[in-house]
Computed example of a mutant assay.
Amino acid sequence: MKRQTLNRAALAAGGAVLAAGTLTTGISVAAPEHHKPHAGHGHTDRSSKPSKKQIAALFDGWNRALQSGDSRKVAARYASDAVLLPTASPQIRTTHAQIVDYFNHFLKNKPAGEKIRTIVNVLDSDSAIDTGVYEFHVTDPKTGRKSTVEARYTYEYEKRGGKWLIVNHHSLVLPAAG
Rank of each mutant, 00 (worst) to 15 (best):
Q4M: 14
T5M: 09
N7E: 08
R8A: 04
A9K: 10
A10Q: 15
L11C: 04
L11T: 12
G14T: 01
G14E: 01
L18N: 08
L18H: 10
A19S: 07
G21Y: 04
T25W: 13
T25P: 06
G26F: 02
I27H: 05
E33N: 13
E33Y: 10
H35D: 07
H35E: 09
P37T: 04
H38I: 11
D45Q: 04
R46I: 13
K52R: 07
K53W: 02
F59N: 03
R64Y: 06
G69S: 12
G69K: 00
R72N: 09
K73C: 04
S80D: 14
S80G: 15
A82W: 04
V83M: 08
V83G: 00
L85S: 12
R93M: 11
T94F: 01
A97V: 11
Q98G: 07
I99C: 00
Y102I: 04
Y102L: 06
Y102M: 06
F106A: 00
L107Q: 09
N109P: 03
N109M: 11
G113F: 03
R117H: 10
I119D: 06
V122C: 02
L123M: 05
S125F: 05
S125Y: 05
I129D: 02
I129G: 00
V133G: 05
E135A: 09
T139I: 07
P141C: 08
R145I: 14
V149E: 03
E150W: 09
E150Q: 07
A151F: 14
R160S: 14
G161R: 14
G161K: 15
G162W: 12
G162F: 13
K163R: 15
I166D: 01
H170D: 05
V173R: 15
V173E: 09
L174H: 00
L174Y: 00
P175C: 08
P175T: 11
A176I: 12
A177N: 13
